[in-house]
Simulated scan of single mutants.
Amino acid sequence: MTLKLEILGTGCKKCQQLESNAKNAVENLNLTADINHITDSIEIATRGVMSTPALAINGKVVSKGKVLTPEQIQAFLQ
């Protein structure tokens, strides 16, 4: 099963950093994942996210309003 990671945010510097950290986490664990960046504010709001950046794994939002480190993301993926 391929993991599905989504970065929810407008594309600001923090959102870009979270996306980079997510890619690093996936690489560090030798996993296969689809990583998408969702920038549509309406789509973000429908998921209950009011502060960005946010991270969703397989459709479930696991973090809102902070830039997780690769190590923190790896903990969610293991």
Rank of each mutant, 00 (worst) to 15 (best):
T2W: 04
C12F: 03
Q16Y: 07
V67S: 08
I38T: 11
M50D: 04
C15L: 11
A33R: 01
N24A: 15
N21L: 05
L18E: 11
S20V: 09
T46W: 10
K66R: 15
I73C: 05
L8N: 02
G59F: 15
K14L: 13
V61S: 13
E43V: 08
L8D: 04
A56N: 02
L31N: 04
Q16V: 14
I38F: 02
V49G: 00
L31Q: 07
E71H: 06
T10N: 03
C12M: 06
N21Q: 04
T52K: 01
Q78D: 14
D40K: 10
I35Q: 02
A56M: 09
T69P: 09
A25R: 01
A25H: 03
Q72I: 00
V62Q: 03
L31K: 07
G11N: 08
I57K: 05
I44V: 14
I7S: 07
N36H: 13
H37A: 15
E27Q: 10
A33G: 06
T2I: 12
G48V: 07
T32A: 04
Q74W: 04
F76N: 08
L8F: 02
A33K: 01
T32W: 01
I38C: 06
C12Y: 09
A54K: 02
L77C: 09
V67N: 04
D40I: 00
I73G: 11
L5C: 13
V67Y: 09
M1L: 14
D40Q: 04
T39N: 07
D34H: 03
T46Q: 15
A75V: 15
N58T: 02
T10F: 03
L5H: 07
L18Q: 05
L68D: 03
L55N: 01
Q17R: 09
L5Y: 04
T2N: 07
K64G: 08
E19K: 12
A45L: 15
R47D: 06
G11C: 05
N30Q: 11
N28T: 10
L31S: 11
Q74I: 06
A75W: 09
S63K: 13
L31R: 04
K14M: 12
A25C: 07
G9M: 12
S51W: 01
N30W: 02
L5Q: 05
P70R: 00
Q78R: 13
S51Y: 02
I38A: 02
E43Q: 12
T69G: 09
L18Y: 14
T10A: 06
S20G: 09
R47M: 14
T46G: 07
E71M: 14
A22F: 06
Q17A: 13
L3S: 11
L68A: 10
A54I: 01
C15M: 10
T10G: 11
E27K: 14
P53D: 03
L68E: 13
L77M: 12
L3M: 11
L8K: 01
L68T: 08
N28V: 02
V26N: 07
